[in-house]
Design a binder for these strands. Structure first.
Lengths: 200, 200
DNA sequence: AAGGAAAACGGACTACAGTCCGTTCTGAAC
DNA sequence: GTTCAGAACGGACTGTAGTCCGTTTTCCTT
C-alpha cells in the first residue's frame, strides 16, 4: 500500500494533527496580540507564552519572525493578487496597462495604510526581492503590465525599481513625515508610473 | 576670561581628551575588524573588547550600531558630496542636469560596490529618509537636478522614489542575483533617470 | 492494541543591540 | 597643587531573534 494515493512522485507527507492545531493556535493568538498591542510589540517569547506553546514551535512552523508575519498577511496578499489577476478593472484585466499599473500602486498604498506594520514585518532580508511568493507575484504582475504598455527596457530591473517605491517600510516612514498623505503618495505613484511608461 | 574665544553664542564645550582619543581608537579598531572579517560580522561587544574599551563608550560616542558605521563612511560620503557639488563634470557642475543625474546614480552604484556593506549598515531605521546628513544631502542634490532639468512634479517625493532604487541594501541584494551586474544596474538607472526627466 | 520510527515540541541557551548607573577621569578655577 | 563639578567610562543588565537537543506525541504498521 502506498502512503500517498494521490501523488506518487514527490509526495509531501500530510502534516500531523498537533502541527496543524498549533499552527492555527499561533496565528490566532498572534492576530489577537497584534490587535491589542500592535505588530512591532509582538515578540516571539511573548507569543509563545500567550499561546501556551514553546518558542521552538514558532520557529519550526514559520522559520522566522518575518515568516510568521508573512503567514498573517497571506490571506490579504492572496486576495490582492486575485483582484489583480481576475478582479474588476481598473485593477484587474479590462483597463489599459498604464491605468492598471496606476491602480495597482494606489491599491497597494491603501493596503500599506491598512496593515502596513504587518507588511513591513513580513519583509525578509534587507529589502524586497523576488524571494517570498507575494513579492514574486507582484514582480510578475508589474512586469507583464509594463510589457503590455509597450515599454522597451530592462523590465526585470525597472519592475524592481518601481516596486521599491511601494516598499511598506518606506511608505510607512514617508507617511510619518509632516505634510505627507496617502493622496500625495498615490499621486506621486501615478506620476512616476506615467513617466516611466510614456517613452515606450 | 571666556571659555571659548571663537564662538560666544551657542558654544559647544570642546570634547575632552579621552573622548577624542577613544573615538579615534574605536574607529581605527572598527576599520581593522571590518577589513578582517566584514561589516556584518562586527558586533559591538566584539569591537569593545578589541578596542579595550567598554561597550557603553561605543554607544555614548555613536548612539547606535548604524551611527558607528555612519562615522566610518563619513569621509567617503563627504568626498562624494563634494564631487557632486564642485567636482568635475559630469558629476559636478558643467554638464546638463540629466547627464549629471545619470552620473550621480552610476557613481553611487560604484560606491555601493566598493563599500556596500558599510553603507547598508549605516542606514538607520527601516528605509532611507532625510534623517542622517548624507541622505539629506543626496536628496537635496537630486531634487535640484530634477528642477534644473525642468521636471514638473512633486519633486520631493520623486526624489525619494528615485533614491529608493539606489538604496545600498537593495543594490547589494540585486547584485547577488544571478545575471545581475554593476553595468546592468548602471544602465537601468540611466534608463530610469531619462524616462523620469523626459516628460518635463 | 501494541510497538516504534519519525515528526513535533519545549525551553534552556547563544549572540546581539542597546540601557543604566555607580565609578573614574579631566580640566578649569583658585 | 588642590579641589570638584561634570563629562566620560565600564560592564552588568534587559529584551530580543534564533538555535539545539533531549523529551513527547502522533500515527502507521502489524
Amino acid at each position: 500500500m502506498e502512503r500517498n494515493l494521490e501523488v506518487v512522485g514527490t509526495a509531501t507527507p500530510p502534516p500531523r494533527a498537533d502541527a496543524t492545531r498549533n499552527r492555527a493556535r499561533l496565528l490566532d493568538t498572534a492576530r489577537r496580540l497584534v490587535a491589542e498591542r500592535g505588530a512591532e510589540a509582538l515578540s516571539m517569547d511573548c507569543l509563545a507564552e500567550a499561546a501556551g506553546l514553546g518558542k521552538g514551535t514558532i520557529f519550526r512552523r514559520f522559520g522566522s519572525r518575518a515568516g510568521l508575519f508573512e503567514a498573517l498577511v497571506d490571506d490579504t496578499e492572496r486576495a490582492f493578487q486575485e483582484a489583480c489577476m481576475s478582479g474588476p478593472a481598473p485593477l484587474g484585466p479590462g483597463a489599459d496597462p498604464v491605468t492598471r499599473l496606476v491602480a495597482y500602486g494606489r491599491r497597494r498604498l491603501d493596503l500599506v495604510v491598512e496593515q502596513g506594520a504587518l507588511l513591513a514585518a513580513s519583509n525578509h532580508g534587507p529589502s524586497a526581492l523576488g524571494l517570498h511568493p507575494a513579492s514574486r507575484a507582484a514582480g510578475m504582475h508589474v512586469r507583464v503590465l509594463l510589457r503590455a504598455a509597450g515599454v522597451r527596457a530592462d523590465l526585470e530591473l525597472l519592475t524592481i525599481q518601481l516596486l521599491a517605491a511601494l516598499d511598506p517600510a518606506l511608505v510607512l516612514n514617508l507617511l510619518r513625515l509632516p505634510g505627507m498623505t496617502l493622496e500625495r503618495l498615490g499621486a506621486g505613484w501615478e506620476d512616476l508610473a506615467r513617466r516611466v511608461t510614456a517613452a515606450g
